[in-house]
Each structure stands twice: as structure tokens, then as C-alpha cells.
Design a binder for these strands. Structure first.
Lengths: 220, 220
DNA sequence: GTCTATACAGGGATAGAC
DNA sequence: GTCTATCCCTGTATAGAC
């Protein structure tokens, strides 16, 4: 009766005794290296060998720990999604206007874009085309995050007269799409996101907030 | 003195006599096949051999006509951008409200998404990460299209009190990003775009149009 | 648990026949 | 202008030493 930790992304063959030494640490290293490879080389250049180069470890470790490159990419998506959810849940819980939502988005942008975590996600999403395993894995990994954003939008809609009119899921998809699309275009022209884009989005959000307030001042 | 047609994406070695027979037709076939490969296999699976399989021609033709796979992808982006610009310029020229702009976007969506042309673009954009040649080529190819959208947004802004406040380029980027992001997510969950998303966007646009009108009814 | 070595498939690209 | 054949490199994945 082996005592495996059995993390959900554990693809290791059955073991017989105790031994996990730096295993979890190594797994983290591999995920981190994959993240870097996705950011720097894109999905097309993210091979097992490229990932190993980025992390300075042996290529075979990927298959031992994650079964395949795709398995690793799914693990990357899941860990990143969990991390992001935990990190931004508190801020999202306090959002009560579109302007504030954009402010959180901007914070996320400032903190995560330069680290390349969003770029990595867009690359994995692009890679999901033509791979059922990746598609399913990524979709699962994103669920907690979209649920979080969806709840926030629910709360925002509840403060306006449009709660019954505008489907929350569509708005969530739209927000997520806007964010990912910005990253996709930023890859093309890096200075795009380094400037006024989010400032403009904040202006637009404040504008709409103000219009909403003017249109329904007695709703609160 | 050779009589080459010298299309901008012509990578063929110098020829000595007359002969262009079905060359242009072949080039079109190759571009079309690349489009299909991008849509069906994604950028990671779009190899010269995969493209040749999709089109039923020989792999070596790609290198003869476009110099490299990347060269072909740039040609794909450029031709698609030109085609889209020509196709939607008339409709965009008549747009005079946000609602109408979204309506054109929806038409573009309905006509192009199922053909996979937008999906192909997102894949090429993803592939541009880590490839300077692709980045530059794609950026160039998109310029006429973004100029078209930018002009439309200029016109929309001119009809509101916010022309001086909101930078047109940021709004253009935002619109493009939203569109591409939708495609990226649609790859993950195909039924996302097959339904209410654009209807909701039209609702939101109409809403904002109404609010703008109410806020500044005497501007026109 | 990590490394080296290796099998084997597939990809980019070119040479040369037609 | 198109095809066949080929070179060489890179990729995935596994076996087995340590």
C-alpha cells in the first residue's frame, strides 16, 4: 500500500516506498520553466527540450513527473489559475463599480503581464486548438477563475437596473476575452500595453459608471 | 531582363523567361491550405508537411513560392487582412453609432468565424511570439485593417463629447483585442460564440448609445 | 528521483529529375 | 513549375544506469 501524495497532476508511476525528497520542488521548477518557455518561445517553440533548457534540468524529468509535455502544460494552467484566483479574490470581492473592476484588472495587468503569466496562458489557449486533451485540461483549470469573475459581475449588475437584462456569463466571457486579446496583441507590439491602454479603459469605465448613475440615481 | 510579376510576397528565385502559368493559382492554393491548417491544427501543428496534406500538394512548393513556412504565414496574414479590409470597408464607412459598429462586428463574426479566418489570425499572432520575422510581418499586414477600424472609431468619437478625451488608438486596440480574445476562448469552448455573446454585446452597445444620447442630447 | 543514452518519428529545407 | 528523394536537425518518449 504505497503512500503517494497523489496530487491531481501526478503522473508518476506507482512507487513502493517512501521517497518524495525534493520531488515537489522539482515539479515546481519544471512548471516555472514551462512558464518561461511559453512566454519567451511561444507555444510553437515550447518543446520538452526547450523547457529543460530554460530550467536547467534534464528533459526526461518532464515525462517522469507529468507524463507528457501536454500534461505539463495543463498543470501549468491549473497552478496559474489557482494562484491567480487566490491572489485576486480579496480585491475582486470588494469591487462595487466598473471603474473599480478595471482598477483590479489594471493591478493584475501590472503585476502579471511583465511576469508573462498571462502571455503563457494565451499561448496555452492557442495550443489547445487541435488537442482535445489540452482543451479539456485548460477549460477545467480556468473554471475557478471564471467563476470568481462571474460572481463579481453578478454583484456589479445587481447594483444597476440591468441585472435581469444582461447575461452574466456573456459579460464574463467578454471581460476575459478582452484581457486575453490585449495580451495577444501585446506580443506583437510590446509597447501597446505599456502605456495608456488601461488608463483609457479606466476612463471609459468611469464614464459608463457616471452615465449609469445619472440614468438611475434612485436605484441604490 | 525577366518579366516577373513581383508580388510583394514573391520569394521565388530569379527566373529567366516567361512562365507564370498557374503559379498565382498555386500560390492561392497554398495560402488557402495554410489557413485550413492553422484553423484545424493550430500554430503548433502547422508544419510545411501538414499544410501540404491539407492542400493535396507537395511540401517543397511552399519553400519555392514563399521561401519558408514563416514567409507563408506572413503572406496568409497579409492576404486575409487585405481581403477583410476590402470586404468590410463599405459597411464600416456607414457606421455612426456603437450599436452599428457592433452590428458590423457581428456580421464579420457570422461570416468569418465559421470559415476560421479569425481563428487562423489568432494562431499566427500566437506564433509571432519568439519570432521577429513573423512579428514584423504580421504587424505590417494588420496596419491597413487597424487604420480602417481606427477611422471608424474617430468618426464615432466625433459625434460625442469625448472625442478629445479618449485616445482613438487605445479604443482601436481594445476593440481588436476583444475580438481576438473571443476567438481564442471560442477555441476552448466552441459553443461560446455560437449564441448570445454578440447579442449581449449589442445590448450593451445600445445601452451605452442611449446613455450617451441622454447625457449629451444637444451635441449633434 | 535524476541523469545519460538512445530509438524513432516528424519537421525544415535543398538538390535535382522531370 | 512541380515532384521525388534526401540530409540533418529537433521532438517525443523510453530504458536503464546511478
Amino acid at each position: 500500500m504505497p503512500d503517494r501524495p497523489t496530487a491531481p497532476d501526478d503522473h508518476r508511476p506507482t512507487r513502493t516506498g517512501r521517497s518524495k525528497a525534493g520531488a515537489e520542488h522539482t515539479r515546481a521548477r519544471i512548471v516555472e520553466a514551462a512558464l518561461q518557455a511559453l512566454r519567451d518561445e511561444g507555444i510553437a517553440g515550447t518543446s520538452a527540450r526547450a523547457i529543460a533548457r530554460h530550467g536547467g534540468f534534464n528533459q526526461a524529468l518532464i515525462f517522469y513527473h507529468f507524463g507528457s509535455v501536454e500534461g505539463l502544460l495543463v498543470a501549468v494552467a491549473r497552478r496559474e489559475s489557482e494562484r491567480r484566483s487566490a491572489l485576486y479574490a480579496p480585491a475582486l470581492a470588494e469591487v462595487s463599480s466598473l471603474t473599480e473592476l478595471v482598477a483590479v484588472a489594471r493591478r493584475l495587468h501590472d503585476e502579471e503581464f511583465q511576469a508573462g503569466t498571462v502571455a503563457a496562458l494565451t499561448q496555452v489557449l492557442a495550443g489547445a486548438v487541435g488537442s482535445d486533451e489540452l482543451s479539456r485540461g485548460i477549460a477545467d483549470s480556468l473554471r475557478p477563475w471564471t467563476a470568481l469573475v462571474g460572481d463579481t459581475i453578478d454583484r456589479l449588475l445587481a447594483g444597476t437596473p440591468f441585472g435581469g437584462v444582461l447575461p452574466r456569463d456573456d459579460l464574463t466571457s467578454g471581460v476575459a476575452a478582452l484581457f486575453l486579446g490585449i495580451e495577444l496583441l501585446t506580443g506583437l507590439d510590446p509597447q501597446m500595453a505599456d502605456g495608456s491602454l488601461f488608463a483609457t479603459m479606466e476612463s471609459v469605465a468611469t464614464l459608463i459608471d457616471g452615465l449609469l448613475l445619472a440614468a438611475a440615481p434612485t436605484t441604490g
